[in-house]
Design a protein around this nucleic acid. Structure first.
Lengths: 191, 191
DNA sequence: GTCTATATCCAGATAGAC
DNA sequence: GTCTATCTGGATATAGAC
């Protein structure tokens, strides 16, 4: 049997899962609390037993999405050559973005009216940056400029794909060439 | 004296200008028609003499922003070396994005609830693509993949700047290095 | 064209009984 | 914790007089 706190947390997870489903179905984050309540089988005011406000729900989604992002990037294989690792990381990132447009919007664009992530939720996003910096260091890439150009490049491919051809592969299919360009640039002195 | 149609168009321009001001001040595109009306000195329903709906206003803003974008990119100097031209184009694009975050959101992210640009407004955006393709051809860049990677790279720099450090220059300051990377890549066979 | 008045609809959030 | 009822506040859009 679950204890009371565990039940409470389980209910919170179910609410957040319903929010993700609604957002994906509608293609936007503008779901109403009434819809959320209906999706989990309660009345709207009951949600306030689990979240203090709608922004608290967005915050939980933001944290949830960043945990998924961290998990995904952790599982990128790093056993091959530096170029293999870069390609795997770029492909994983772009796939993560493209497979869920509303998650991408919540995590990487800052576009919801009055919502600002809490420090706790934001810290998870910081963990991903740290992970990337560590992995790049292992590849011999230490220049902060290179890291910034990397994030611009791969997030740019994902964003162009989502904005101009959602569901397609015109930009996401350029990931190999883009990584080649980047690797040529950062490894040029060593060859 | 202005004719009646010219007056009407002038009033439309004033309304759109007020919308841009409001959006910039509030940092978002969620202004209300009541605010717009107050800004131009009329009551809200009077706006319907000039625009059929709020989405029609967004559409006019979208067209207006794309005209400004086209104008800006047209004035990029192309008299220097190919690398100079690329750098000037990238810098102009990023400056255009960063100087007006809400315009960037309207033009390049697709994030307003029920708004889809009309074909007429969208055609202006297409003109910019055409301009870019022509200029790239003059530089000897014909591969569509290179054009896609270019847009991903420069729009990625701008988007990262806006999302993570609005008002700063951490990513926009990497434009020279990024263009160097890109130019090395697309011109590599020629050197 | 512009106005006042209003229709219509919806949102997030709270009060208080059970 | 959950419910019903309600508060409070907004939005876009229309009707119809002037």
């Amino acid at each position: 049997m679950l204890g009371k706190d565990a039940r409470h947390e389980q209910a919170q997870r179910e609410i957040i899962a319903a929010c993700w489903r609604l957002a994906r179905d509608e293609g936007r984050l503008g779901f109403s609390l009434k819809e959320v309540a209906a999706a989990v089988g309660v009345q709207a005011p009951s949600l306030y037993s689990y979240f203090a406000s709608k922004n608290a729900i967005y915050d939980a989604m933001f944290a949830d999405g960043n945990r998924a992002f961290l998990e995904r990037m952790r599982t990128v294989p790093t056993s091959g050559s530096p170029r293999d690792t870069l390609l795997a990381a770029a492909a994983a990132f772009i796939e993560f973005c493209v497979e869920d447009p509303v998650r991408h919007q919540l995590l990487f664009e800052r576009t919801i009216a009055g919502f600002e992530p809490s420090p706790a939720a934001y810290a998870i996003a910081g963990d991903v940056i740290e992970l990337m910096r560590d992995e790049f260091a292992k590849l011999g890439i230490h220049d902060p400029a290179h890291l910034d150009i990397w994030t611009a490049l791969v997030s740019g491919l994902a964003a162009q794909q989502l904005a101009n051809e959602p569901g397609g592969s015109r930009w996401s299919g350029r990931v190999a060439a883009s990584v080649e360009m980047f690797a040529d640039f950062v490894f040029k002195e060593e060859s």
